[in-house]
Simulated scan of single mutants.
Amino acid sequence: MIAAAVALGALALALAWPVPVALSRAEWPVRSPATALVLWQGIALGGGLSMIGALLAFGASPAGSLSGAADALIPVIAAGPIPEGFGVVHLAALTLAVGLAVHLALNLATTAVRAERARRRQHRLIDLLASPASASTGARVLAHPVPAAYCVPGLRTATVITDGLVDLLDDDELRAVVGHERAHLDQLHHLVLLAFRAWHAALPWFPIANRAERSVAMLTEMLADDAPRRRVGVEPLRTALLRVGSSGASAAYSDSPTASAASDERVLERRLARLEADLHPLDPRARSATWLLATAIVAVPVCVLAAIAA
C-alpha cells in the first residue's frame, strides 16, 4: 500500500507540473491539435485520479486495502475509538481524498448547471432578437453594427452572426467564419472546455489548471479553424480573421470564459501563424503513440486503485 501511494504520488506530481508545462511549451500541438487535446484530457483525468489515489492508498495502508480500511473505520466513525494501527495522518489523508473528490465533482456539476442556464438565456435572446436562419449561411442574424460571430451549444444549437459581420466580409469569408463556429458545435468543444473550466474553478490557486484551460481553449480554436480551412480554403479564413480581429471583435464562443484583450490577441496571432505556416500533421505512428500515452496515464491509477481496493 505504501509503495502504491508513493507511485501514485510521484505520478500525480509529474502530471501536476513538469508534464503539462512541457506540453504547453511544445510546438507539435499546433500540427495535430486533436491529438494534443486527447493528451491534455489524459493528463487532467490521470492527475486527479493519481492525487486522490495516493491519499487513499496511504490512508488505508494500516488495513492493507481500501475495503479493509472501510470495514475498520466506518463502524467507529461516530463512536470511536480509532482502530489500532491508524493514526491522525492516515485519517487526515482519507478525509482529504474524499473531500477532494467531492469538491471536484461538485465544481463540475455547478459549472455544468451555470453553463446550461447561460445557454438557455442565450437561446431565449436569440429567439427574441435574431432573425431566422438565412438560406445562404444557415446562421441567425443579429442586428448589431459590431462584427461578431458565436455559437450556442446544447440540445438545441444556434450559430449567430451580426449585421456588422455580414457587411464586413464577402461570401467566402462569411462561410469560413460560420464554418468555424459550426465546427465548435459539431466537435462538442463546449464539453471539453467545461471540464477544464471546472478544474480551474475547483483549484484556482493551482497554476497548471489555468495553463491547461488556456491551452485547451487554444487547441479547440485551431480545431475549429481546420473545418473551414478544408471546405473554403486558407485565404478566406485568414482574411476573415484579420478583418474581424482588426475591427476589435473576435469570434466569440458563447460558453467560453471571459478573456482579456491581450489573451484574445495572442490567440489570434497563434491562429494566423498556424494558417500561414501550412503545417503538416504528426505522422500516424506519433499520433498513435500519443493516444497510447494518454490512455496509459489514465489506466495506471485506475489499475492501482483496483488492485488495492479488494
Results as ranks from 00 to 15, higher is better:
78 A>Y: 09
71 D>P: 02
87 G>D: 08
96 L>C: 14
67 S>N: 07
86 F>S: 05
129 L>C: 08
53 G>K: 00
126 I>A: 13
78 A>T: 14
125 L>I: 11
117 R>A: 15
58 F>P: 02
92 A>Y: 04
62 P>H: 09
121 R>W: 07
56 L>D: 02
131 S>V: 05
64 G>A: 02
53 G>Y: 04
120 R>H: 09
108 L>S: 08
96 L>F: 14
78 A>E: 12
97 A>C: 07
77 I>E: 14
70 A>I: 13
87 G>S: 11
108 L>N: 07
73 L>P: 11
66 L>P: 10
111 T>A: 14
91 L>T: 10
91 L>P: 06
122 Q>F: 06
75 P>I: 11
112 A>S: 15
99 G>E: 03
75 P>N: 10
72 A>R: 15
130 A>V: 01
127 D>W: 06
100 L>E: 04
113 V>Y: 14
99 G>P: 04
77 I>S: 15
53 G>A: 01
126 I>H: 04
76 V>K: 03
65 S>E: 04
102 V>T: 00
81 P>Y: 12
104 L>Y: 05
96 L>G: 09
48 G>S: 02
115 A>H: 09
108 L>T: 08
82 I>S: 06
131 S>P: 02
74 I>T: 15
57 A>Q: 00
83 P>S: 11
136 S>D: 14
109 A>C: 08
67 S>F: 07
72 A>Q: 15
69 A>W: 03
108 L>F: 10
55 L>E: 03
75 P>A: 13
66 L>A: 10
66 L>V: 15
57 A>H: 03
102 V>W: 00
53 G>T: 02
110 T>P: 02
87 G>W: 07
136 S>A: 14
100 L>F: 06
71 D>K: 09
72 A>N: 08
58 F>N: 01
72 A>M: 15
126 I>S: 05
92 A>H: 03
97 A>R: 04
75 P>S: 10
86 F>M: 07
104 L>G: 04
101 A>I: 00
67 S>M: 07
105 A>E: 05
125 L>A: 14
139 A>R: 01
64 G>P: 03
119 R>D: 09
115 A>M: 14
72 A>I: 11
69 A>S: 09
95 T>Q: 11
57 A>D: 02
76 V>L: 05
139 A>F: 04
138 G>F: 03
52 I>P: 00
81 P>A: 13
112 A>E: 15
68 G>P: 06
74 I>V: 15
135 A>K: 02
57 A>V: 02
91 L>E: 08
61 S>I: 04
50 S>N: 00
108 L>A: 10
58 F>T: 00
49 L>H: 01
98 V>A: 15
61 S>K: 01
